[in-house]
């Protein structure tokens, strides 16, 4: 078996072992599920549709947003951060592998674990107590899946880019966490961007964030037409290419001057 695939498998088996982690994270998600659905029920009281989206669609949007957030993990950043701090990057680089493919394989393993462990419980819980998150059509659903893959690539590359910065600065304090929440906010995970002032919306059109969460989610609920979905995915691909180019440049720079801490 290919070493990268084996890494994915190992990560998968490994994270299956963390029971405690599993239950606490699940609990957080279920709470989030109820809180957001109550929030939208309250917000929509007496209102039929806002910005072409009705209450039902909006609640499905937030359920699926929680599902996506629980699937997407990019541990590259924290991985590199702890390795740089402890000087353990060295042991990754003494192996004849592409180190970042290895990190990517690890994250794929984590993601498969999340799909197996976390998606089903959240979906079941939502279907019983809140709403059955049904896509508008099969075509929309398939586009949603494809678009989500691109979303993951964008998020992973952003995470890897930030991770590469740790080679340079070693310590960035809380910037990492702030960045995560900022991305989530600007990506429309909590409140979709169409509720923002139109000037903000225009600016966000030109930034990558809404192409991580909002695009696949609004495809799922049918707010984005199939045609627009394809256009959106084209922009996603563009962002993937831009971030990939940046990533390769920064990675080459860092590898040329790798900073290994201590002896």
């Amino acid at each position: 078996m290919n070493p990268y695939l084996y890494m994915t498998k190992m990560k998968l088996l490994l994270s299956m072992n963390y029971r405690f982690d599993f239950f606490t994270k699940l609990a957080v998600q279920v709470i989030l599920l109820f809180v957001t659905s109550f929030f939208w029920k309250a917000a929509y009281r007496g209102i039929d549709t806002v910005q072409m989206v009705n209450e039902q669609q909006m609640i499905i949007y937030s359920v699926m947003s929680i599902v996506l957030a629980s699937v997407f993990t990019a541990s590259v950043e924290s991985n590199i951060r702890s390795k740089v701090r402890q000087g353990n990057v060295a042991v990754d680089y003494i192996k004849p592998v592409n180190v970042f493919w290895m990190y990517f394989a690890e994250d794929i393993g984590n993601m498969v674990t999340n799909i197996i462990q976390r998606v089903a419980p959240v979906l079941i819980c939502a279907s019983f107590f809140i709403v059955v998150p049904k896509p508008v059509s099969l075509a929309h659903f398939l586009l949603f899946l494809t678009s989500s893959c691109f979303s993951f690539l964008i998020l992973w590359l952003i995470s890897a880019l930030v991770g590469l910065f740790y080679f340079k600065v070693i310590e960035m304090g809380p910037i990492g966490i702030i960045k995560d929440y900022l991305i989530r906010l600007l990506a429309g995970t909590f409140v979709p961007i169409w509720f923002f002032p139109s000037s903000v919306q225009t600016v966000l059109q030109f930034l990558p964030f809404i192409y991580t969460y909002q695009l696949p989610l609004s495809i799922f609920i049918g707010r984005t037409s199939l045609n627009d979905a394809l256009w959106g995915m084209l922009i996603q691909i563009l962002w993937v290419l831009i971030f990939f180019a940046l990533f390769v440049r920064l990675k080459n720079h860092v590898e040329r001057n790798i900073l290994v801490q201590g002896g």
Binding site: N88, V91, Y93, I94, K95, V97, N98
Partner: peptide, 19 residues
């Protein structure tokens, strides 16, 4: 690097390459 490292074994006493 990748070619050389294929035929190279390294042990850093204070670090481990084990998972």
């Amino acid at each position: 690097r990748q070619v050389i490292v294929k035929d190279l074994g390294v042990v850093f006493g204070q670090r481990s390459q084990l998972y």
